[in-house]
């Protein structure tokens, strides 16, 4: 038996939390796939193409997450929470920048070397690694902001 009338909503405030799933999961999983591609010994042109698609998709969704974070989230937080929001935005900007640079290098390599997705492997690896660090920092501050300050749902008092 239900305790009351269930009301399901989808407001502007829900857009950013819905989109952030993609860059978090795809940057981390994509980096794992990229490492498998880089360090396995067999010829992996097809695997490189797979890693390339995941990287490009991760970059697009990271940009979308940043965009929705800037335009569709509120900014009237208390001082402590405001500091965390600034941290969160800084790390989100770094994440988007790093993953976009990695994707642009890969796309540039793909277009300038007759569709060879195995070019510029190590520069991409460096920026991908930095994107992984940044996305973890972004997610940590985002979690702290959401669960810690907006309501002490998961905090030990």
């Amino acid at each position: 038996m239900l305790h009351g009338k269930l009301i399901l909503k989808f407001t502007e405030a829900y857009i950013h939390p819905s989109v952030v799933h993609f860059p978090i999961a795809l940057i981390l999983t994509g980096f794992l796939i990229y490492c498998i591609y880089l360090f396995r010994k067999r010829d992996s042109r097809k695997f490189a193409l797979f890693a390339y698609y995941v990287l490009v998709f991760a970059a697009i969704t990271a940009f979308a997450a940043s965009f929705t974070g800037v335009y569709y989230t509120k900014e009237d937080y208390a001082d402590d929470a405001m500091r965390i929001l600034i941290d969160h935005r800084f790390w989100a900007m770094c994440t988007t920048l790093m993953i976009c640079i990695a994707a642009i290098i890969k796309i540039f390599g793909y277009l300038t070397t007759f569709k060879n997705v195995q070019s510029y492997n190590w520069p991409v690896f460096v920026f991908y690694s930095l994107a992984v660090i940044c996305v973890i920092m972004t997610a940590s501050s985002g979690t702290l902001l959401t669960f810690g300050y907006l309501k002490n749902a998961t905090f030990i008092p």
Binding site: V20, H21, F22, I24, A25, L26, L28, T29, V54, F57, T61, A139, T143, F147
Partner: peptide
Amino acid sequence: HPGLIHFGIALVIF
């Protein structure tokens, strides 16, 4: 749970 659901949702859709 809030951490791991990112992988479930994003990977199924992707």
